[in-house]
Amino acid sequence: MVFGLSVSMAMLSMGGEAHLNPAVTIAMTLTLRLRPWRAILYVMAQLSGSLAAAALVLGLTGDISPTVNQLAPGVQVYQAVLLETLVTFQLVLVVLATTHLMSSHPSLSVLASLFVGLAVSLGHLQAVRSTGCGMNPARSFGPAVVTFNYHTLWVFWAGPCAGACLAVLLNDLLLRPRWGCLGDWWAELKEFFPSEQLDTHSYTP
């Protein structure tokens, strides 16, 4: 619960639009709410922040192993990937819903931040005993790098990224449709780049 509240406070302190999670940043990029170059900078900042935080905890405590996301005994890799996918799916879906809410009612940013924090708490209540609940690839990245424990790090990237993509598909194609077909999405994507950088002849809607 404290983890969820800390995310809510971080969002509020940054105006309700904090990018703390690469999975969320990927979702915002796929939905064309965020330009790719800015997304790359966000992810770089997220990973740098994770490394700095992990190094700080290691320096203060001398032991960071409890913060490393790992599979609990008896949990298979496919189960861990599926669980990470599901908890991140619900988080990103809530983020997309609250983004839609704030675009219509900016005054509700406090409520939106609390909803996102609750989604983070819910994910941890469900997954913390099985995987430590990565949900955020950056959160898993720092401790893994500092401890040189990369064995299952890919799980905490694959699951959250898959969950983010599924949330985008459900939200923007079914719950709050923004495009009638893939061609509409592609046409809007092309506006992000100079025309000569996209080979429109090789694309078939």
Rank of each mutant, 00 (worst) to 15 (best):
S195G: 13
A52Y: 00
N136C: 09
L86C: 10
W37I: 10
C165N: 05
P106K: 11
C165S: 15
A167W: 02
S50F: 02
D172M: 00
P106Q: 10
P22E: 07
A45P: 00
L41V: 15
A164S: 15
F193H: 09
W179C: 11
L60P: 00
T29Q: 09
G180P: 02
G62D: 10
M9V: 10
F193Q: 11
T204M: 07
A23G: 04
L189Q: 05
A45Y: 04
R38S: 12
Q90G: 14
T29C: 15
A119H: 08
L174I: 08
P177T: 02
L118M: 12
D199W: 01
L153P: 08
S121L: 06
G49A: 09
S104R: 15
G163C: 08
T99R: 09
R38H: 05
P22V: 06
S6W: 01
E196V: 05
Q90I: 04
L41N: 08
M1N: 12
S104C: 12
T99Y: 05
P106T: 10
F148W: 08
R178Y: 04
P22S: 05
S140R: 02
V94R: 04
W37T: 14
L153N: 13
F148V: 15
P137S: 06
L108S: 14
L175M: 05
V24H: 01
H105A: 15
G134I: 01
S107L: 10
E17T: 05
G159Y: 01
L108C: 12
A23V: 00
A167S: 15
T204L: 15
T25C: 08
A53C: 14
Q46W: 02
A52L: 13
F193D: 13
P143C: 13
P137R: 02
C181F: 08
T88Y: 02
T152G: 07
T152P: 03
L93T: 07
V146P: 03
T29D: 11
L86R: 00
S109N: 10
Q76W: 03
L173E: 10
